[in-house]
Nucleic acid binder design. Structure first.
Lengths: 190, 190
DNA sequence: GTCTATAACCGGATAGAC
DNA sequence: GTCTATCCGGTTATAGAC
C-alpha cells in the first residue's frame, strides 16, 4: 500500500475515534508511519486529507448497505434489515458524527460529503418503500419520504443516545421502536 | 447579574455555537466581558465552567418540555406535541451535540449531564405512553420503552441530518414520519 | 474579586536538505 | 517522495499586582 493510502487510512481511523477538530496532522503521521513532508506532498493540508478520507469512508459505507440488501424481499423487511445492521454505536456514525463539528460544517467540501451521503441513503430507503407501495404491500397514502427520513434519523439519533449513555441498549431500543412503528405503513388486510 | 452568571451564560452560548473543544476560555471571557482572573476564581478551569453551563442548559430544557405538556390530552397527542416543538436544527441539540465530542465523552462529569438529561426525557415519554396504555388508548402489547427511545432518537437524528444538509426540512420530515408511525401503537378500533 | 502578564505547550504549515 | 528543523499563532493555566 502506498504512503498516500496509509495516510488516508490513518486519517479515516482517527476521524472515527476522535472526530475532525481533535485529530492533528502529527497524530495522523505517527499512525501512518510517515513524515510531515509526505503529507504535504500528497495533500494540501489537513482539510484536504480529511476530504479524501471522508470520501473513502462514505463510498465504503454506501457500498456496504447496498450489497447487503436483498431486493427480492418485501419492502418493510428490507428496511428492517437495514435497521438491524451491525452498528457500532459507541464510536458513532463515521459520517454523522463529524457533522456536529463546527469546522466540518463550515467547510463546504467536507460537509458536502456528509450531505450527499445522507441524501443518497434517504433516497435509497424512499425508493425501496415506493416499490413496496407499488406492490400493494404499503398503504397508498404512505409518506415514503417522511418514513425514510425517520429511519435514517433513528439510526443517527441512536448513536447520539448510545454515546450519552455509553451503552448500546438505547440505540437498539430506538431501532426496535422504529421497526415496530413502520407497521403503520402496511396496507390494511382484507 | 453576577460575573459568575455572565461566565456561565457566555459559556452556554458558545457551547451551543461551537461545541466544547472549539470553545476557548479566551472567547468565553471576551463574550462575558471578564478577565481571566475571574474565571479561575469562580471555577477550576474550562471543564468546570462547562459543567456549570451544561447543567444550567439541561435544567432549562427539561423544564421547558414539562411546562409545555398538557397532561389532560391523550398520550399520543402529548408525544406528538413534543415532537412538534420548535427545534433549532441547524445549531443542533444543546446537549446531544456535545456528546459527539471526544473530550466531553471522556469526562464523566460532562457526559453524565447528557446521560441524565436523556434518561429523564426517555423516562418521561415512556411514562406518558404507559398512561395511554392504562387508559386503553394504546395497544396492550405496545413496547413503550422502545417507542420512547425512538421518539428521542428521531429528534436527535433530525439534528444530525439538518446539519449535514444545512436545511431544516429533513428533521421536519423525520419528525412527521415518526408522528405518523406512532399510529401503530394505537389500540384497534372495535 | 478582578485584572494583566507570562509560562509551557501544541496546533497547522513551511523550508530546504537528501 | 520523504525527511527533519523551524515558525507562528493560539490554548489552558498560573503568578502576582490592585
Amino acid at each position: 500500500m502506498s504512503t498516500r493510502d496509509d495516510l488516508v487510512e490513518a486519517t479515516a481511523e482517527l476521524l472515527r475515534e476522535r472526530g475532525y477538530s481533535a485529530t492533528s496532522p502529527a497524530r495522523i503521521l505517527e499512525r501512518a508511519g510517515a513524515g510531515q513532508g509526505s503529507m504535504y506532498h500528497h495533500f494540501h493540508g489537513k482539510a484536504d486529507l480529511a476530504r479524501a478520507a471522508m470520501e473513502h469512508v462514505a463510498a465504503v459505507m454506501t457500498e456496504a448497505v447496498e450489497s447487503e440488501d436483498d431486493p427480492s424481499l418485501p419492502a418493510l423487511d428490507r428496511i428492517r434489515a437495514f435497521l438491524a445492521r451491525e452498528w457500532d454505536p459507541l464510536l458513532g456514525c463515521r459520517i454523522g458524527r463529524l457533522v456536529q463539528d463546527a469546522e466540518v460544517v463550515g467547510d463546504d467540501d467536507l460537509r458536502g460529503i456528509a450531505d450527499r451521503y445522507f441524501t443518497h441513503l434517504e433516497d435509497w430507503i424512499a425508493d425501496v418503500l415506493e416499490v413496496g407501495r407499488a406492490a400493494g404491500e404499503l398503504r397508498g397514502d404512505a409518506d415514503t419520504r417522511a418514513a425514510a427520513a425517520m429511519v435514517v434519523a433513528v439510526v443517527q439519533g441512536g448513536f447520539v443516545l448510545a454515546r450519552a449513555h455509553q451503552d448500546v441498549a438505547t440505540q437498539q431500543a430506538a431501532i426496535r421502536g422504529a421497526s415496530l412503528a413502520l407497521g403503520a405503513l402496511r396496507a390494511r388486510e382484507h
